[in-house]
Simulated assay, not measured.
Amino acid sequence: MGMIVNTNTAANNAYRNLNNTQKALSSSMEKLSSGLRINRAADDAAGLSISQGLKSQVNGYQVAARNAQDGINVIQTAEGGLNGAQNILQRMRDLAVQAGNDSNNTAARTAISTEAGQLSDELDRLGKSTNFNGINLLDGSANLKFQVGAGSGQSNQISMDLSGVDLSSMASGLKASSTGTQFNVAAFDTGTGAPSGLNASYSFTSSTAGGSKTATVDLSANTYTNVDAFAADLNKNADFSASFSATVVKDGNGAGIGVVVTAKDGGTVKATDAAGADAKGGFVDSTGTAVGSGVVGLDFSTSVGAQKAIDLLDTKIAAVSAARSNIGAVQNRLNSAIDTLNVGQENLSAAASSITDVDMASEMAKFTKDNILSQAGTAMLAQANQSSQSVLKLLG
């Protein structure tokens, strides 16, 4: 091989190897300092794509677990209200049993009715005030969904339906009211279907000292065979539900026998049919006579009334117990969901780690090797640069 100056092949070769070593050394330092095997897409394009998908799932599981815990907090708030409601109903039942004894005189029965009325008011307040983060839980409007998965769709949600739990409506059905403030729908006869005129258009007017409110509900296109469906359609009507509430009255066997319509502003309610006449065909008082007489709700004035009150309160207590059982089951389901989410998060984190995290021991060994090669390459580059100096001797 000739002695040349313009092109130092040995130096170029040493420089190329040193450059590659420096790149590897820089990559190792980046991985060791970050703890990640993949710091940019160029490190592992496929691995980056997979790891980002796993990261989304892991983060989603973390948030979903918090959502589930929030759901448990909501349930515990609702159950606290239902527990208070059950205590109120149990006390009212005790009063009904006490009122069933004819050893009570008029003054004693009045005192019992007064306490029961206060308890009904407290039940109503409880229904309106039990809320979580501004969401009312016990006014019949709560139908909640908890996101307990990292993806979309119903399989990632757990529902809790409290739309059938309306303590305010329950309280209005229990509170003893005088003439004209509430109406009962005539009892359903399973042999003949709904009472005459029940599937018609009705106008409800609530009158107070401050004015009046009116709602018209057209049910003429519907046919009813039970009072529950009729009451449900009344409450579904936006105009009606804004100012009134309908509560089903049940007999001792739990069958719906009537509905109580109450004004939310406490006003006197009047019901008229499509022709403007008093709706006497479907709305009568507890004795079966025309609207405008009798007492609706719990009646402790007689032993017979107290016996009916016991049956009615038993129905309400059973309804609250069923609601508590339902949300208790949902709470257990949420607890199971949290456990599953935690296991899934752990497994997915491990999978992501195997793709993105660097093996520190292996990378350190590689770094040490590249560091030695870097020093050797630098020395060899210096030697290659010196090799052309021998040409000067020929010129001397």
Score class of each variant (00 low, 15 high):
residue 347 N to G: 12
residue 360 M to Q: 14
residue 80 G to H: 04
residue 290 A to N: 15
residue 138 L to R: 10
residue 383 Q to D: 06
residue 263 A to N: 04
residue 247 T to S: 07
residue 258 G to I: 05
residue 308 K to G: 10
residue 71 G to Q: 02
residue 375 Q to T: 11
residue 198 L to C: 01
residue 79 E to W: 00
residue 93 R to A: 05
residue 36 L to R: 15
residue 33 S to A: 10
residue 204 F to K: 03
residue 122 E to V: 10
residue 282 G to Y: 13
residue 367 F to S: 14
residue 159 S to P: 14
residue 68 A to N: 02
residue 229 A to K: 00
residue 235 N to K: 06
residue 90 Q to N: 13
residue 309 A to E: 05
residue 326 N to Y: 02
residue 53 G to C: 07
residue 35 G to Q: 09
residue 329 A to L: 08
residue 159 S to D: 15
residue 56 S to H: 12
residue 391 V to S: 08
residue 360 M to I: 15
residue 120 S to N: 03
residue 238 A to N: 06
residue 94 D to P: 09
residue 333 R to A: 12
residue 164 G to D: 03
residue 310 I to L: 05
residue 76 Q to A: 11
residue 97 V to I: 10
residue 153 G to Y: 06
residue 165 V to H: 09
residue 178 S to L: 00
residue 392 L to D: 09
residue 325 S to A: 10
residue 202 Y to H: 13
residue 163 S to F: 00
residue 113 S to C: 01
residue 171 A to Q: 00
residue 47 G to H: 07
residue 294 G to R: 07
residue 319 A to Y: 00
residue 32 L to G: 03
residue 208 T to A: 04
residue 59 N to Y: 15
residue 197 G to C: 11
residue 115 E to L: 03
residue 166 D to I: 02
residue 331 Q to A: 06
residue 80 G to A: 07
residue 238 A to G: 09
residue 77 T to E: 09
residue 346 E to W: 01
residue 353 S to I: 10
residue 280 K to D: 14
residue 82 L to C: 02
residue 295 V to M: 03
residue 254 G to A: 05
residue 268 T to K: 14
residue 17 N to D: 13
residue 156 N to L: 08
residue 132 F to W: 13
residue 214 T to C: 06
residue 145 K to D: 15
residue 163 S to T: 11
residue 15 Y to M: 12
residue 54 L to N: 07
residue 24 A to I: 10
residue 284 V to R: 10
residue 195 P to F: 03
residue 274 A to F: 13
residue 336 S to W: 04
residue 293 S to C: 08
residue 136 N to G: 15
residue 38 I to P: 14
residue 168 S to C: 00
residue 314 D to T: 06
residue 380 M to Q: 12
residue 7 T to N: 14
residue 273 D to P: 06
residue 10 A to F: 13
residue 388 S to F: 12
residue 298 L to N: 04
residue 188 F to P: 07
residue 55 K to L: 12
residue 272 T to H: 01
